[in-house]
Design a protein around this nucleic acid. Sequence first.
DNA 1: CTAGGGTTAG
Length: 733
Amino acid sequence: MAMVVASSNIIHFLPASSDPPYELLRTHPSLALLSKCKSINHFKQIHSQFIKFGLHNTQFALSKLVEFCAVSPYGSLSYALSIFNSIHNPNHVIYNMMIRGYSLSSSPNLAINCYSGMLFIGLEPNSYTFPFLLKSCTKLSTANAGKQVHGQVFKFGLENDVYVHTSLINMYAQHGNLDDARMVFDKSNFRDAVSFTALITGYISRGYVDNARELFDTIPVRDVVSWNAMISGYAQIGQFDKALSLFQEMKKAKVTPDVSTLLSVLSSCAHTGGIETGNWVRSWIEEHGHASNLRLGNAMIDMYAKCGDLSMARNLFDGIQEKDLVSWNVMIGGYTHASNFRDALEIFRLMQINNVAPNDVTFLNVIPACAHLGTLDLGKWIHACIDKHYHDFPNETLWTSLINMYAKCGNIEAAKQVFSGMETKSLASWNVMISGLAMHGDASRAIELFSQMTKEGFRPDEITYVGVLSACCHGGLVNLGREFFISMMKDYNISPQLQHYGCMIDLLGKAGLFDEAMALIEQMEMEPDGAIWGSILGACRIHKNLELGEYAFKNLREVEPDNPGAYVLLSNIYAGFGKWDDVARIRTFLNDKGMKKVPGSTSIEVDSIVHEFLVSDRTHPRSDEIYRMLDEVDRLLEMAGHVPDTSEVYYDVDEEWKEDVLCQHSEKLAIAFGLISTKPGTTLRIVKNLRVCGNCHSATKMISKIFNREIIARDRNRFHHFKDGYCSCRDYW
DNA sequence: CTAGGGTTAG
């Protein structure tokens, strides 16, 4: 092997013994230049300085030149090699620096060649050689080379050097060979915090946190990295409480935290809602001059957002001058996490204005916001953006999120397109597609898709069955619903959860099968929740069942004492029986308790802007036009013979409820605005926060015919497609 | 003259 090759431009061959005294070399001014060198061109100038002063004839200076080229990020390994090749008899240091260079490069295997070359010319490796060589072995995917190098360590009697054995432990640990890592550790006669920590991180990365902790407790003197390894280990596996209590111990031990510590601690605070510790960390960061650290800033934003203090998060976010992608993502994610979807989209808009390119994390936080708000235009724009820039990164979660968004924004066709375009479908994608179809009342397609997914070998999970059962529920398919419910338990061993019972009880109740519904409630192994009693109560309203209605109300009030919806539904039942005294009694009770019903609101997206309306809302800038349109709508409805159904309306009871009679429900305002602000024939998509009332439902059916508009309405539970005077729910909801 | 252990969003 010819490791020593003369290079054409460097022709000096000198024996090592010609080095002048180290002191003269070490203090030479040209050496100081290297520490400031930031480019290879600058290095070449320094190199010629070395030649000019005759420094390049010394092993010392040559080792410095090779070190820079091989190790510095501004160096170049090929340049290091050309210098190395010009050296007649490189010493240990020069060889070590070449090996180190390879260990840092993308071809760590070449370190081994270099090591062979060193042996070939008769140089013995020393205690510095192996840490570098072992780092290369660590980077290799196979364990073979590492084993052999371990043999070399014995051969040269270096197994008791603490640096060498730490490198061995680390190498084995990184390869997942914890037994050998432990063996080296146990056999070594000297251990410090570094060698302990190497083994501890190995245990943690394989999930053996308890073994790691056992070891951690026996470290004689722990340094900050040991603490960090253990604290972040707990955080990684989700044991955030343990991470935080260990941090308290670290404070007691008077070990100063560094940036890594603080990042782990902030993340733990974020996950546990531990805002007190979070506040402490924040003041510590400010006192110790870390306030301008971007990563800490981002972690603090995340912590405050996840702990629910969005305004503090926003203050910190606004205070960061040089925001990076993560800053934007944590702020958007914070708002989405807190269900503050409008602000999430607002930050996203600011991000566009600031020309910051989004990534998949951004989209995963923005798309659900679009889904909740029903902003189809923005959702489409994001979809186009993903198609354009991120098609190379197939991200099933991203497509699944898009399917869900299209379904929730009322464009089920686009949802189907994204779904069928997915090359590899995940269980989650089948699930969102099925529940999307269910939401749109397309029970037959949902069920068809379910059988297709099982044919393709996917095993349905509990979420799949929530979708399937809710499809049956929205389609009124009682028999099929029963069959699926049984098959879920029998064929897939999924025990029904609250949501499954909820679907079944809703389905049975709406069909008037009260005995069966109540029997199912008896059968449940958990306490029925408010949704279940609510659906019984709602079914009692439809089927005018006063006795069961009162019973369901009693139970609902026990589970959700502060839910005014229970009183409203019961009042509806009384109204259906003409029991106005009871209606009034409930009203008085609600007023005395100061309970307000959740204000209904409806939003509509026009030209990518979301307009939100409340009952009798007059705050919109085009309010006058909207109310003129509303008058026109009411006039045409009356002409077409639309008679408001007064059975659900609270006559003579309350100012707020009177407005129902005036037909100024928020959905009608949104529709009126849609009619005046879009071209004739444009589909109107509205999103309502509550369930659509009977009056608005029948009015909207007629509006769709009179104005020749398709109106797609999302309420709390499902979609209604109004067209030509009909609704896709077939008045069953 | 050279060295070993650890890192943000979902």
